[in-house]
Amino acid sequence: MDTAVVAEGLEKRYDGTTALAGVTLSVERGEVFALIGPNGAGKTTLVRALTGTTEPDSGSARVLEAAPSAVDRDRLGVLPQSFSPPDRLTARELVAYYAGLYDDHRDPEAVLADVGLANADDTWYENLSGGQQRRVCVGTALVNDPDVLFLDEPTTGIDPAGRRTVWRLIEDLADSGTTVFLTTHDMAEAERLADRVGLLADGELVARGTPAGLVADHAGSSRLTIETPADQTAFEDLPFPTATRGSEVVVREVSPADIGRVVDYLEQRGIDYSGLSWAEPDLEDVYLELADETELERTDGTALARAGETA
């Protein structure tokens, strides 16, 4: 496959804060690449560096074999994270407006249908619901039928049904050969849509791979979560590793066939519990495993700094 997006050693700092610390990645043509990571990890900065709307301090990027600022704009579709179009236009007028900026553009009505707004009335953008607004914004990124599409948190604020509409749309685009680079906080979205996922934390790409590969490498085993007021010591005789998480005890390496053994254990010991849930490891576990480490380092650092201040 040809490469659609390449970043090599991208670095960017803002007022002493490192947004990107040498990010290197590539996205093949027709691939859906999802970038996940905590708030402030540098996701939006990376999207901006790849779309030519910020200049990296060092490193280089190429999109469709050109520098981001020199890419043929007719082949690029971008949805910025905090994008808010003119608010006193209707959804139909907004899509038509952005379509009018391109020589070759799709029928605005078809775009509205794609984002689930075929029946949009004359309501101004400012009076649409948050989810409808975001769908209009997604539509404005599709009007030119781009070869490469950057979507920075496309489904934020969209209800579950609308989110699935956007997901199906992205899947259709990928099927037709569009390269999609998206950022998201929704792990289910990344797991469902992405061919590959990259995890960005503190400006560094700490993991990348297929969703299944990342889960296998980083998410650990299946888990049985027990909502219980009991202490972890009550589970010492259970033949599975356990850990306490708030008011829950998480039992690891439990197969579906072993659930009955755990329930019997609870009954025999008279341990109170109000809920029991079993789950296969997923991308969220990868996120919590890798991104939480940096989050913990950051919050521990803050706590230590505060302790130092008060000492």
């Binding site: 901006r48 779309t51 030519g52 709307t53 704009r73 007719d74 690029l76 579709g77 971008v78 949805l79 910025p80 994270q81 905090s82 994008f83 808010s84 179009p85 003119p86 952005y98 900026l101 391109y102 020589d103 404005t140 030119n144 950057f150």
Partner: peptide
Amino acid sequence: EGSRFEKLATTP
């Protein structure tokens, strides 16, 4: 404030 120039910069 609405990142509209960021969007327009990626259009022709």
